[in-house]
Design a protein around this nucleic acid. Structure first.
Lengths: 271, 271
DNA sequence: CCCCCACCGTGTCCGCTGGACACGATGTCG
DNA sequence: CGACATCGTGTCCAGCGGACACGGTGGGGG
């Protein structure tokens, strides 16, 4: 193969911002570095991309290796490439973020002896590299996403109460929400399955449990994703959807409010 | 420097999706490749990241080198890293996208003799590598962004008519908009300066010209941009979701609809 | 046993925005 | 001077977002 590049190459890593939720707060997964630079400091789990694996595969592998953690819903966040972000030389990192049901994941100490632990996102220790920036970016993204994608459910146990869900939203958005309005809106989405169960072991009236209806969501996702075929633009006809199968194209899944079937949907967003 | 990594490294490039607008259509800037692989094919402008420059700097440099084009408003889009996306070996590319006033940029043929040209985004030739995916991703992003950021103005000349603006939105969103509603909404933003001029050289009644008011926009941006200051979170103790009443922060960068002063803004988006 | 406490669960009203909808005014050109 | 092309304008209604309060229920403690 004669066309190989011979320029010096930066190193490429992936880093993962993994969010979890417990009773107290929104948590982020950190690992303690065992080697220089920043030995002893806490950092986001991550590591080098291998030559034969995709970026997302690399992120998954590192999560598994460093925290014994598997997750669906891994999403590319941003790529950080400032020349001086790593004291060892040029290292570009592709950041991913993920949501996990914290309760279901007992952290297995990392295979390579480093420690892994959950920290409140509002109160982390000093982080290695530019990981504080990465975390801030991830929080911002989470805050934005939670508004138009039902991703929050990834953070809760399979069965949850509406109060839990509301607390989740309040935590992520950093503001209080009105209970009645919240319920009205959430239930109007018609994506929750009302169970014949209530929570246990509480010293007051028990709340009803709900489950996220993945099937219905998938349906809506499909149904509401026709928004590209705008039919009648005159001049040219050959607009092609471009197969999304091949590479890692981001998929903006779907809005919670797709249900509305408005002929002329808003072209500017309401906040 | 003893801590240098010695793993094999992927090559890292940047690619730019540059959009422009003319009377006919939304255009994208492409260059024709002069060397293998894909010699003769059209591709997005881009190239290798140098060891001492940031990713964004690299993108700017390549744009300048390959098309003699300078732009503000360069934004990171997505990073494409599928192992087989480049036949020469592992090449990871960080894609950027940009908007330019097409009328103001006469393309200077690339310094390295490759040709540069504008193509309708709906009717491009077959692209090299996975650049069709990159373009599709960029279009999707543009479509999303135009709704809540006044970025469209980057595509128009400094003075423009509301009809031009409307055509821009219609082109990007791929659907028709109602003229009266459009004007109502756009003018309600209060970001356009109404000029005492009308367009020239038209064979019908001339339309009034407007100018985008960058000052006002910056102000609003600042006013609505306090959203990151989560630094002041009372350490751990109890979660305190911010006072409801005053000085709340809209999460997203900046909405065209910031003007509304609603105490409890929606926590789920309207489409 | 009874009371208290803590949380659960529910409905209405108002203001605003989004969106549907049509026509007279103005200027050019032949 | 008439035909043509685009400009510029207002109203009405439906639906959503958001403000707002209280009785119900179950457990626990006195």
């Amino acid at each position: 193969m004669s066309h190989t590049y011979e320029y010096p190459r930066p190193a490429v890593t992936v880093d993962c911002v993994v969010f979890g939720l417990d009773e107290e707060d929104l948590k982020v997964l950190l690992i303690q570095r065992g080697v220089e630079p920043y030995a002893g400091r806490w950092a986001l789990p991550g590591g080098f991309v291998r030559m034969e694996e995709s970026l997302e595969d690399a992120a998954r592998r590192e999560l598994e290796e460093e925290a014994g953690l598997r997750t669906s819903h891994l999403e590319q966040l941003y790529t950080f490439g400032a020349p001086e972000r790593d004291p060892r030389g040029r290292v570009i990192t592709v950041a991913y973020f993920a949501l996990v049901k914290l309760s279901a994941h007992h952290l297995q100490a990392a295979t390579d002896a480093r420690e892994a632990a959950w920290f409140s996102v509002w109160d982390t220790p000093k982080l290695a590299f530019d990981h504080a920036d990465v975390l801030a970016t991830a929080l911002q993204r989470l805050k934005g996403k939670v508004r138009y994608q039902p991703i929050g459910f990834e953070l809760l146990p399979p069965k949850f109460t509406l109060s839990q869900l509301q607390r989740l939203y309040e935590t992520v958005l950093e503001r209080e929400l009105d209970k009645r309005n919240f319920r009205k809106k959430i239930l109007a989405m018609d994506l929750l399955e009302e169970l014949d169960e209530v929570e246990q072991d509480v010293s007051h009236r028990a709340a009803r449990l709900y489950r996220f209806d993945h099937k219905k969501y998938k349906q809506l996702e499909k149904a509401g994703f026709n928004f590209d075929g705008s039919t009648t633009r005159s001049t040219n006809s050959s607009r092609r959807p471009a197969s999304t199968s091949n590479s890692e194209a981001p998929s903006r899944p779907l809005l919670m409010t797709v249900l509305r079937n408005a002929p002329e949907r808003g072209f500017l967003a309401s906040p």
